[in-house]
């Protein structure tokens, strides 16, 4: 099963999702195995504070963590380019908490992105 990253505002399964990617508080790293699953948290505070390029830096962070699937709210064009270069599949439209985002993904309810859906900020 692939390694999945979900943009979240805190740690744990009940953490509310963060719709932003580059300026997300952190990433929930989910690994699914036979009948078991694990979750860990990668804080994104450093990228979040970046004067510019938060999205591309975050893309680097999740790529380095070996993520293959990203579940988030919106991805800007620069982050999209970086994620694509890393071969990461992007699904947008998450809501609720990390648990719910994962359930929506497994049920095929999220939208697979073929293009950036928000403009860059600066």
């Amino acid at each position: 099963m692939p390694k999945i990253a979900i943009t979240v505002t805190a740690e744990g399964w009940n953490a509310p999702v963060d719709e932003r990617f580059g300026r997300a508080a952190g990433f929930a790293l989910v690994e699914l195995g036979e009948g078991k699953r694990s979750i860990s948290f990668i804080p994104n505070s450093q990228n979040r504070q970046a004067a510019q390029g938060a999205g591309t830096q975050s893309a680097e962070t999740v790529a380095n963590a070996g993520v293959e699937v990203l579940l988030t709210g919106h991805v800007g064009p620069k982050a999209f380019r970086a994620l694509k270069a890393a071969g990461i599949a992007i699904y947008t439209g998450i809501s609720g908490d990390a648990e719910n985002a994962l359930r929506d993904y497994e049920a095929g309810k999220l939208i697979k992105s073929t293009d950036a859906d928000v403009e860059s900020h600066w």
Partner: peptide
Amino acid sequence: AFNAIVMICGKPLVFGEL
């Protein structure tokens, strides 16, 4: 200093806009 270069899969990727 402007986060215009990231390393993806061991290769530098340049973002001219930044």
